[in-house]
Design a binder for these strands. Structure first.
Length: 749
RNA sequence: UGGGGAUUCGCCAAGCGGUAAGGCACCACGUUUUGGUCGUGGCAUUCAUAGGUUCGAAUCCUAUAUCCCCAUCCA
């Protein structure tokens, strides 16, 4: 488990600590218009996971505000996915459609406040009026309608007196907002459509931006977690909740990066296209990244959960490598499932010196899996082995059967090849061999050394099965469309042979077919007469990789050349200021440049300069620290004079620049004078070596390992020791002095 | 002539001014009746780039580059 917390949990910690919320309530809010995929699983893990970690709860909420796309079959798939992953939403399966009456009332309230209006522009005009990303939009003439008129119109909309598209309800915000989402967003539209749950009760339906925030509020959600593409919508989320003056606490929205996995697609549109176009066999096709697909393929919930845990949560768009997912399922199944023998591409072996038959007792589990269970393997004169496990002209490093090299039949005897029989085309159709009677597994006295043990099945007792072998659905790492589909993503093998116990005893539903991979008895198509197995994932195969891979082409890392963009020229006044700062005051170019280009900064600087004539240190602190505060919305609590005083204390070495930062932080929040802060906190700098030396001794004593590393040549550790000393003085030690002393001491140890 | 995000190893991802965590992948060795598992070791003198502040910068400041999102009566 990750020790470090993700940014969402950090936020929850903070909110709980500050008392903003008493309980953590989250929600998983899918729209029931498609089957959930592994991206949804990530969201489920985040929302239900956080609720679980903080003893809160998580609602499963169907965001069903668009009657034309949604359906109850998707609701079932969604519920099933959540349950399969092991989460319990209890009574809390909610529907936005249940809130339609409340939502309507909120809309009326907004109209009454003059914050929403009925617009009657047609769709094209509305787009036109919205402007573009770079140009402001303009408001519809209908925005001038009176509250009464709006109320009346809205009610008529609800009563079905208008046709689809005739009117909409819009929020009155700002048609020139830089955030396009805030240009009077739509709140309600008319849809004379049957809703799968609300029936025909409504002919107006709320939009996402209006319904979502209020649904969260109605449910008492504290942390409303969604994906990155909703970042711009957060402004409306906040606007609606603020304008309505709701009773606190209210929810806040946070965004994380959605999951991307290479060689697959995750968009609902593309998934739907694959299913409806019959490029795959339904939503639960094992090649699909849907939950239903993984479930049918044989993935375990544990493996998906573990995968979601491993990939983490962050805000950077990312593409996770499928090998990470494959690792998770192998890792899970490795410790759980029985090993059995199956031959996918059989070639007959006649053991010429063997007569009769026997049953060999064999464990289902290897020595490193602590589980119990055995079966009997029938063995006789005729068996089948894997075609790949014999080679007449073996490459270097081939461990299996060759005319010269014997091999062990797993759990049974060592076999030596005597003769190879081929058809007219040169294909091997049979191998004649001899076994070594004294080489039986467990009582081998033959002394023969073999390089590997291969799987086999008895020719008479083996059962024929169908095996469905899946490869990645797309041939491209970042597939765009149908043209990127892998034509060989499914291979059906109807002639595989498996040892009888698997079919007769059914010890499990998932197996490792020894040396091949993990397989799952298909939950739908499997019958006793015609057993069907799905390949979940192959075993890691370092031999196959080595044998296939072409020579490692040394990837030349073309060093990226960074193209520098153009820098905006300075105005004449800025030039003059820049010249003055560099020539008269002796500032460096960077600082002078920043100051000269920022009117607000330079005037702050000039004002402070009147109090103390220490142009350089003043300029440094103004550009690097004050600038940051100036950019914030809130007003400054400190003034130029106080900054000048702070600089004065640095200049006369009362405090170090490290302490100055601490003092500055305090000034930001309290607006107190620097002297007062220094006095109150006793932040005066310690420069006396006699006081510092004992602390250094202490630090050296407490970090013997790092001293050793330092002696071994890790000179970076100097900084570490300086840091430790500074830390134990609460930052008060004079860093320059500490540095010198520590450097001196470390030389001697 | 916009706004909002992001950038740390091949892929994820910690890090919040004081030693660049961890996982996947990869490489090597050891164990092995699965070319699996397991074990051990190796994988970032450097955090998109360039400057600046600091005793000390992935972390603070400035500029630049690149990628993603926003102009559905979808969510």
């Amino acid at each position: 488990m990750n020790e470090s917390k993700d940014f969402l949990r950090l936020k929850v910690d903070e909110d709980l600590k500050s008392g903003k919320y008493k309980e953590v309530i989250t929600r998983f809010p899918p729209e029931p218009n498609g089957f959930p995929h592994i991206g949804h699983a990530k969201s489920i893990c985040i929302n239900f996971g956080i609720a679980r970690d903080y003893n809160g709860h998580c609602n499963l909420r169907m965001d069903d505000t668009n009657p034309t796309k949604e359906d109850t079959k998707y609701v079932e798939a969604l519920k099933d996915a959540v349950e399969w992953l092991g989460f319990d939403y209890g009574e809390n399966c909610c529907f936005t459609s249940d809130y339609f009456p409340k939502l309507y009332d909120y809309a009326v309230q907004l109209i009454k406040m003059g914050k929403a209006y009925v617009d009657s522009l047609n769709e094209d005009d509305m787009r036109e009026f919205r402007g573009t990303v770079k140009e402001a939009g303009k408001r519809s003439i209908y925005a001038q309608r009176s509250v009464e008129e709006n109320l009346e119109l809205f009610e008529k909309m609800k009563n079905g007196e208008f046709k689809d598209g005739e009117h909409v309800l819009r929020a009155k915000i700002d048609m020139s907002a830089a955030n396009m989402k805030m240009r009077d967003p739509l709140l309600y539209r008319i849809r004379h459509a049957h809703h799968f749950r609300a029936g025909d009760d409504w002919c107006i339906y709320p939009m996402y931006d209006f319904a979502h925030c209020l649904s969260d509020y109605i449910e008492g959600v504290s942390h409303s977690i969604c994906t990155l593409e909703f970042e711009n919508n957060r402004a409306i989320y906040d606007w609606v909740l603020n304008e309505l003056n709701l009773q606190l606490p209210r929810p806040y929205q946070y965004e994380f990066a959605r999951l991307g996995i290479n060689y697959t697609v995750m968009s609902k549109r593309k998934l739907l296209e694959l299913v409806e176009g019959d490029y795959v066999h339904g939503w639960d096709d094992p090649r699909l990244p849907t939950i239903a697909g993984y479930k049918r393929r044989g993935y375990t919930p544990e493996s998906i959960l573990n995968f979601c845990d491993q990939i983490g949560i962050a805000k950077a768009n990312s593409m996770v490598d499928v090998s990470q997912l494959e690792f998770c399922i192998r890792d899970d199944l490795n410790k759980k499932v029985p090993r059995v023998m199956c031959v996918l591409d059989p070639v007959k072996v006649s053991i010429e010196n063997y007569d009769g038959s026997e049953k060999i007792e064999a464990s289902y589990y290897p020595h490193d899996v602590p589980k119990e269970g055995n079966r009997k393997l029938p063995f006789s004169r005729e068996i089948y082995i894997e075609r790949d496990d014999f080679n007449e002209n073996p490459p270097k490093g081939y461990f299996r059967l060759t005319p010269e090299q014997p091999v062990r039949l797993k759990h049974a005897y060592i076999l030596t090849c005597k003769e190879v029989i081929k058809d007219d085309n040169g294909n091997v159709i049979e191998i004649k061999a001899e076994y070594h009677p004294d080489s039986k597994s467990g009582s081998d006295t033959s002394g023969i050394k073999v390089k590997s043990a291969i799987q086999w099945v008895d020719a008479k007792k083996a059962k024929q099965i169908e095996v469905r072998l899946y490869d990645r659905l797309y041939k491209n790492e970042s597939p765009e469309g149908l043209e990127d589909l892998n034509p060989n993503s499914l291979h059906v093998n109807k002639n595989a042979l498996i040892e009888p116990a698997v079919i007769e005893e059914k010890p499990d539903e998932r197996f490792q077919f020894e040396r091949q991979g993990y397989f799952y008895a298909d939950p739908i198509d499997y019958t006793n007469e015609k057993p069907v197995f799905n390949k979940i994932v192959g075993l890691k195969d370092s031999w196959g990789k080595k044998a296939t891979s072409n020579k490692p082409t040394p990837k030349q890392v073309a060093k990226k050349v960074q193209i520098d963009g153009e820098i905006a020229p300075m105005s004449e006044e800025q030039e003059a200021l820049f010249a003055k700062y560099t020539k008269n005051l002796g500032l460096n170019n960077e600082i002078a440049n920043i100051l000269a280009r920022d009117e607000q900064l330079s005037s702050f600087y000039e004002e402070a300069l009147l109090v103390i004539s220490s142009p350089i240190s003043l300029a440094n602190i103004v550009t690097n620290e004050v600038g940051r505060e100036l950019k914030k919305e809130s007003e400054l609590k400190f003034n130029a004079k106080q900054i000048a005083e702070l600089v004065k204390m640095i200049d006369d070495a009362t405090i170090s620049s490290k302490i100055a930062k601490q003092v500055f932080e305090e000034m930001i929040t309290s607006g107190e004078n620097p002297e007062v802060i220094v006095e109150a906190k006793g932040l005066v700098q310690i420069s006396d070596p006699a006081q510092i030396e004992p602390i250094i001794d202490e630090v050296i004593k407490n970090n013997p390992e790092n001293i050793a590393k330092f002696k071994a040549g890790n000179t970076k550790l100097l900084g570490f020791f300086v840091g430790q000393v500074l830390k134990s003085t609460g930052g008060k030690a004079n860093p320059a002095v500490v540095n010198k002393l520590v450097a001196g001491r470390l030389k001697d140890v």
